[in-house]
Nucleic acid binder design. Structure first.
Lengths: 138, 138
DNA sequence: CAGTATCCCTGTTGATACTG
DNA sequence: CAGTATCAACAGGGATACTG
């Protein structure tokens, strides 16, 4: 894949140690990646909000716990299949916790975990940045 | 698509006016979207950093203007085709400006515009959030 | 040096219909 | 109520080879 050519990096395989990094932009070694890597914090954050509808589902859950039906009602156009996919993904990342009540009819509650709540500043920053871009074009 | 049923919203078609919104999370009407929309600030910001390798290309340009070859050298594994795609996309969004010097050999400079530089806080927040998620799992 | 041109392959999304 | 099962359509990305 990558041309071996000359190995100028004495360090690990996926870093560029001899470059001068912006200490604010790249505070530690995890950010000195040369390719999209699951170990890079930026990629981890992007993965957390990845997938269509993901930020909208998170926004709804930021308002408090919601049932499957409530989420579906709040986001018409989002099919049950995709909603399930998003929720399962968020659950796998431990950002959302599911609580199913085995009654009839079945009730399921989806709530943010502390890790999920930690995404709030990121959503705010996304909004801020996007709004600034929109205003700049206006 | 959406079940017409009862139209409980007296306002526009893509908003839910009767819901109570978190004023910090959704500061204005542009955030009260019911589906992924190009008008939503969050979507605009996500679009700005969309595409594989995008954040890495932006990171490199945050360090200063770079030529096509410099970017390619700094990001081995990124093919010329995809690098071109990312740069063209960023250019179309006015986040990056291209300056080609018609000499021989050809020299091209890619630099962030003010709008592109405005993405820095977002990248920092992505890093912060991702690092927090990584630390939480450790 | 700075790209283009193809081809192919894979993942993602959406529509629709069905179930414990 | 809270999902699952299929299937079709599409876009994104990578490998490779070529050009002004």
């Amino acid at each position: 894949m990558s041309t071996p050519a000359v190995d100028r990096s004495p360090g690990s395989a996926d870093a560029a140690p001899d470059a001068k990094w912006d200490a604010e932009l790249v505070p530690d070694a995890r950010g000195r990646t040369v390719r999209p890597s699951p170990d890079c914090p930026v990629e981890v954050a992007l993965a957390a909000i990845s997938g269509r509808w993901a930020t909208l589902v998170l926004r709804e859950l930021m308002h408090g716990p919601r049932s499957f039906g409530e989420l579906r009602d709040r986001l018409p156009g989002l099919t049950a299949k995709v909603l399930t996919e998003r929720l399962r993904d968020l659950e796998a990342r431990r950002l959302v916790a599911r609580t199913a009540v085995a009654a009839f009819p079945v009730r399921t509650q989806y709530a943010l975990t502390p890790a999920g709540t930690a995404l709030r500043p990121l959503l705010l920053e996304l909004y801020r940045t996007g709004a600034a871009l929109l205003d700049a074009r206006a």
